[in-house]
Nucleic acid binder design. Structure first.
Length: 785
DNA sequence: CATCTTCGCCGTTGC
DNA sequence: GGCGAAGATG
């Protein structure tokens, strides 16, 4: 057991006495209390492959943590012999805490509980040389990746406009997700990226090696390859990890799947937990297929379904279940609950995005006060979930305006800020001098008179001599390959780095103080002190905060690794705050009160997703909606706007098709009668006896898209009374033709130039040519005011 | 030759 | 609104 690969910290570890005695006596451990039968089965079926199909809110985390506690307390494995994979670092942290709570808090944490990426880094550092790297390799983020690829594209004389670097990044990413190496690109992919993809991929990997760096995909790919090519190494890990657990299995990609299968091959003690209905990372290479074929991959697998939902009220669960039922590709589960009926899902239509933010702000305050006979809800228990991050700003602006505390989760993050990335680049060069991308980033930041010309020369020199940029710079100075002014300034940089690289190698190096001094010496702190822009002081603060964050780590490398993998800077604060985040970031979380704004076709479901992946894309969008709906415990509000400002332009939108799929019985419509945007809602709240009501009764298939869309058309036109609504329903059928003069609420007057179905192309006098939905314009002579 | 200024283009989701 | 490329300035 004295394998130097693995720590011996747990050699003397024993399960808590009380628990092991209970286990020996055959008495159920206390943590088994209150588990429902399938949960309990999932906890107790320790040997052989197990697939836990766990619907939203069915207590899968509980089952998972209990299972680990059970492995530990029955003495099946020590804490460091269990490999447990979570989807986020946050989930890993929380799970450690919960396991500690279950078995008595005595464990020092589980070293092999983490995300695929963090686990792979640990393994890769130990065997870096088998992948052609040094063990102090750096991990590049997306930004670095793109910059590197841009260089390669330029070198290959490819037109960057026609072939954007992002696209190459996407192509290479897809290959890595599927564990495709440059040597084994499938014939079908040979034409990727204008036929240059395979060659550029190979060159990219070569450059990474030279830079002693790897990207996210590499972390897995390198380890998989090391396992495949070095059976002795693989065998040691197979023996060490006696039990394997995987959370969010529906979101694993091919590379991750291969990694797991290699590690589980010998003993097959693998337990995967997932929910095909919550698979929302297809765009990142996740294969729902992994979960669907688990039983084939691991013969004799036990499949356990968790279907009792403990989270949401029955109205909310019913609405979510009905929505997801529209998907065809699913295993199918029947969630049920014993919770109260609760409130129905509330549906609100508004005129534009600003009004939506205003209204939600007011609603949040009203929930906080406990108005309308509700129990007060803390802001910590409320969340606004959006499809895309650009939607967040409207809410931030509004919440700032009314003084409502909020936190943005997963938005533009601390470690992505320019000044923080600059500061880190300095530290990266010191910790890992081969990191040319970091060197490039700061060689002329702050300005040192080292522009394009000088930098190109450094690059060329380095490449010709086969050395890193720092050495290249040194040679360029010695050989006078750059101008005298540049030489002088560059020499200072090189000398300073030499000094600090040496100091950092010393055993008594204080990395916190050192980091601050590095930034001081290079003039980076002064740079922000001198800057007169209003945001300069804040940026200086951020840099100082970054240095402070170093305190929690043993050395620079540890810190830099943490940043590249975790990228979050959470500080617990005392003020309760409303959370704003994307659906993707909300996975695994739950709140008493959830707002889902922006349910408009094209935004949600995202047009791009549908264009790129067709029906598959739409189904993933629907699963995203399902994830959103199932985050709510008690209060759930969906809203949509008739108009939204995007890229400084007004665009009109139809309500999301997902709204049509919400079952009427579980929905309360708040949209004001006769007000614009009265979809779905218009009819439900139209006064008795009105024409709209008659039409609603007629349409037996109330939830049919056709009906809802007709409502949309009718409601869309700033109507104030049922009388106007009646006219509107008729008007909506009136077609506009080319040449007609029309009026639009936001764009003003214009002339129709083209008609295509219900979309018009209109040349507006002020706003220019726009494509609009026919129902949003009126003939210019009958403006409804 | 470096840096500052303006213009046109682009724009999910994230470990 | 942000970014990079091209043009203007010092």
């Amino acid at each position: 057991m004295n394998d130097p690969l693995f720590d011996d910290a747990f050699d003397d570890w024993e399960p808590p006495t009380r628990l092991s005695e209970l286990a020996r006596a055959g008495v159920p451990a206390p943590y088994l209390d209150g588990l429902n039968p399938p949960q309990r089965e999932a906890v107790e079926a320790l040997d052989g492959p197990v697939l836990m199909l766990a619907g939203a809110g069915t207590g899968k985390t509980r089952a998972l943590t209990c299972r680990i506690a059970h492995l530990l307390s029955t003495g099946r494995a020590k804490p460091n012999e269990i490999l447990a994979v979570t989807f986020t670092n946050k989930a890993a942290r929380e799970m450690k805490v919960r396991i500690g709570g279950l078995i008595g808090g005595a464990i020092e944490g589980m070293p092999w509980l983490g995300t695929f990426h963090s686990l792979c880094v640990r393994i890769l550092r130990r065997h870096a040389e088998l992948a052609g790297l040094k063990s102090n390799f750096t991990i590049l983020d997306t930004d670095d990746q793109i910059r590197l690829m841009k260089q390669l594209i330029r070198d290959a004389n490819i037109d960057e406009k026609r072939w954007p670097a992002r696209q190459l990044a996407a192509v290479i990413d897809r290959w890595k997700n599927r564990a495709v190496t440059p040597e084994r690109i499938p014939a079908a992919d040979a034409r990727a990226y204008g036929g240059e993809g395979p060659a550029l991929y190979a060159r990219y990997q070569e450059r990474l090696k030279v830079l002693n760096a790897c990207d996210f995909g590499d972390l897995l790919l390198h380890v998989v390859r090391i396992f495949q090519e070095n059976p002795d190494v693989l065998e040691r890990y197979q023996r060490w990890f006696r039990y394997i657990l995987v959370d969010e299995y529906q979101d694993t990609n091919v590379a991750q799947y291969l990694w797991l299968r290699l590690l589980a091959k010998a003993h097959q003690n693998i337990c995967c937990v997932g929910d095909d209905d919550q698979s929302i990372y297809g765009w990142r290479g996740a294969e729902v297929g992994n979960i669907l074929k688990f039983e084939t991959d691991f013969p004799g697998a036990k499949v356990i379904r968790l279907e009792q939902n403990y989270r949401s009220t029955s109205h909310i669960l019913a609405a979510a279940s009905a929505l997801i039922a529209a998907n065809e590709d699913r295993l199918g589960k029947t969630l049920w609950t014993q919770e109260n009926e609760g409130e129905r899902l509330r549906l609100m239509g508004v005129w534009d995005g600003d009004e939506e933010a205003r209204w939600i702000g007011e609603e949040i305050e009203s929930f906080e006060r406990g108005a309308r006979g509700r129990d007060p809800v803390s802001p910590d228990e409320m969340a606004v979930l959006v499809r895309a991050s650009f939607q967040m700003r409207a809410f931030e602006d509004r919440f700032l305006a009314i003084g409502l505390p909020y936190r943005v989760i997963g938005g533009p993050r601390f470690y992505e800020r320019m000044e923080v990335r600059d500061a880190m680049a300095y530290l990266r060069v010191v910790a890992s001098p081969d990191d040319g991308l970091a060197f490039e980033r700061i060689v002329n930041t702050p300005k040192r008179g080292l522009g394009d010309k000088a930098q190109q020369e450094i690059n060329r020199t380095a490449r010709e001599n086969g050395v890193n940029l720092l050495e290249g710079a040194r040679i360029a100075i010695a050989e006078k390959r750059v101008s005298a002014a540049a030489r002088n300034s560059l020499d200072k940089v090189v000398t300073l780095f030499d000094t600090w690289i040496e100091r950092a190698g010393a055993t008594d190096f204080d990395h916190v103080e050192g980091a601050m001094q590095i930034l001081e010496d290079f003039g980076y702190l002064d740079h922000w002190r001198k800057e007169k822009t209003p945001d300069a002081p804040g940026r200086l603060e951020n840099v100082k905060e970054l240095v402070k964050a170093l305190e929690e780590f043993e050395n620079l490398q540890g810190f830099l690794e943490h940043v590249s993998l975790v990228m979050e800077n959470e500080q617990e604060d005392s003020v309760p705050k409303v959370s704003i985040m994307t659906y993707h970031a909300a996975k695994g979380l739950e709140f008493d009160c959830v707002f889902l704004p922006g349910w408009e076709d094209g935004l949600f479901p995202s047009q791009r997703s549908m264009d790129e992946s067709g029906k598959r894309g739409l189904e993933e969008e629907r699963r995203l909606a399902y994830v959103g709906l199932t985050r709510a415990r008690k209060h759930l509000t969906v809203s949509f706007a008739a108009n939204r400002r995007m890229y400084n332009q007004w665009q009109s939108a139809l309500p999301s098709r997902f709204i049509d799929e919400l079952p009427r019985d579980h929905v309360e419509v708040l949209t004001a009668p006769g007000l614009y945007g009265g979809v779905y809602g218009a009819a439900a709240s139209v006064p008795q006896g009105s024409v709209l009501e008659a039409r609603a009764a007629e349409a037996s298939a109330y939830n049919s898209p056709g009906w809802a869309r007709m409502q949309a058309r009718a409601g869309r036109r700033s109507l104030r009374s049922p009388t106007e609504a009646r006219t509107a329903v008729v008007d909506a059928e009136v077609a506009h033709g080319p040449g007609d003069r029309v009026f639009h609420q936001k764009f003003g007057y214009g002339a129709v130039t083209e008609v295509e179905g219900d979309k018009l192309t209109v040349a507006f006098e002020k706003a220019g040519e726009k494509r609009v939905v026919a129902s949003f314009v009126t003939a210019a002579d009958e403006i409804p005011f």
